[in-house]
Design a protein around this nucleic acid. Structure first.
Ligand SMILES: NC(=O)c1ccc[n+]([C@@H]2O[C@H](COP(=O)([O-])OP(=O)(O)OC[C@H]3O[C@@H](n4cnc5c(N)ncnc54)[C@H](O)[C@@H]3O)[C@@H](O)[C@H]2O)c1
Ligand SMILES: NC(=O)c1ccc[n+]([C@@H]2O[C@H](COP(=O)([O-])OP(=O)(O)OC[C@H]3O[C@@H](n4cnc5c(N)ncnc54)[C@H](O)[C@@H]3O)[C@@H](O)[C@H]2O)c1
Lengths: 207, 207
DNA sequence: TAATGCTAGTGTCCACGTTCACAAGTAAAG
DNA sequence: CTTTACTTGTGAACGTGGACACTAGCATTA
């Protein structure tokens, strides 16, 4: 294998492959072929092989990929081999749903601290975390948290992001429908659910 | 302007432009330049102009784009000029959050029917809709609903999707972390929040 | 050992999308 | 009218990523 810059699109797909491996590991097959994995996920086999080839040979011709080894490799590439601790800011409708969602665990994420500014919510315990006052957010340093999840109203998102960056968070998942401007050292991914819904009608045959 | 196939990536960005126009329309400026809009959204001006150019000239050189006209045009292209009625299936943590979310309105969406299979929830009224028994989902036809939102556990997602297709839904927004297989006539967009979070660490400097 | 069947890895070509530079158009000021 | 400042619209160059075909490797069977 020669040197290759890894395409962003490949990185985008790796979690999908990982999901496929983790969810279909009930099959208890030791090996899985690119054809089989592609079938499960609804993608092309050669896309999968190409993506993996950027990182060196995982598989064995004639056999496929060892599920356990492949899973570990992808986790390592995505830096999910070490667990990550996240903080959630804003425990409203969406925040509460995220907090209750078990789906982050399979990727090794742990929501270890949550904040809100509503005095009625502060102190409440949800699952095994207690909602803290957002005023104390700036003191988060040293609690080994490297990810931030923003679920506050749009007007407060940038402000919260600034604090998160100050306390050393390296990645932000933002649910507010707005741009967030931070140091280039920090990666921000914004999910705007309404925007995704908005492009659905375009593809629908006009009734 | 000649004939051009509209790139998918352009369609993906149109809702973003629309969001920018709708949220910054408090400025009450009659016109907005591509430079200004780009600044607000954090994208490139020429990308915006290129995207708009696929649909013909919206703007006026030296002046910019008329905000109202542009807004209407984008809505028309995305088929958001006519309102859309959606049904939500699964009123759990996430479903409830979506139901409470006012952000769909600006794109003209209305969640007009919601379903669940939990007898404790059926009959409950949230906002101005009442949760109906999912067993009655197959009888949705004729209620002028063309969009479906799936927020049920992974194992039930495909089953619900099949019913939605049967009753004539043309577009599905799926929050379950799984593939959904439907007729090619129906557009499915799947949002997997955990997957987005999972690619965040890759971009973070290893501490 | 030889033959067969399956699968990974990869070089190459092609399609698509982004970037850019510039011509052409508008408005306002001189 | 002329000049200046600004903005759109777009052809063309460029870069990236996807589709594919083919080689090489492994395993199983004869
Ligand atoms: N609910 C959804 O389905 C949904 C979907 C997409 C996007 N969003 C976005 O997610 C964000 C949250 O949505 P929501 O429905 O949970 O809203 P919400 O009003 O239910 O919750 C917001 C929470 O943030 C808290 N909060 C407000 N300002 C704060 C601050 N400065 N610091 C800390 N906490 C603060 C509030 O006390 C509240 O608990 C919004 O930006 C919304 O646009 C929500
Ligand atoms: N909560 C989150 O933040 C989150 C994030 C990403 C994805 N998701 C996904 O969204 C889906 C829902 O998540 P949730 O947290 O709301 O789960 P949940 O368990 O809180 O809610 C599921 C709801 O669906 C109902 N339901 C179950 N089977 C049904 C059926 N066959 N027909 C109709 N209703 C049915 C249940 O009664 C319940 O009310 C899951 O697939 C989950 O993976 C959730």
């Amino acid at each position: 294998m020669r040197y290759h810059k890894i395409p962003d699109e490949t990185v985008r797909r790796l979690p999908l492959y990982l999901r496929g491996l983790l969810f279909s590991s009930q099959d208890l097959q030791e090996n899985i072929s690119s054809r089989k994995l592609a079938e499960v996920l609804g993608v092309n086999p050669w896309q999968i092989r190409k993506d993996f080839s950027y990182f060196g040979g995982f598989g064995t011709p004639g056999v496929g990929y060892n599920v356990e080894k492949l899973t570990k490799q992808i986790k390592k590439i995505l830096k999910l081999d070490i667990g990550h601790r996240a903080t959630l800011v804003g425990v409203g409708n969406l925040g509460a749903a995220i907090l209750a969602y078990p789906g982050f665990k399979i990727y090794g994420f742990d929501i270890a601290a949550v904040f809100d500014n509503n005095s009625k919510k502060i102190g409440q315990k949800i699952g095994d975390v207690t909602i803290e006052d957002v005023a104390k957010l700036p003191m988060l340093k040293g609690r080994q948290i490297d990810l931030g999840i923003i679920a506050v109203p749009r007007g407060s998102a940038q402000e919260i992001a600034n604090i998160l960056v100050d306390v050393g968070i390296k990645g932000i998942l933002n649910f507010s429908p707005c741009r967030i401007d931070v140091s280039k050292k920090v990666k921000v991914i914004t999910i705007d659910i309404a925007m995704d819904l908005a492009r659905l009608p375009y593809y629908m045959p006009s009734s």
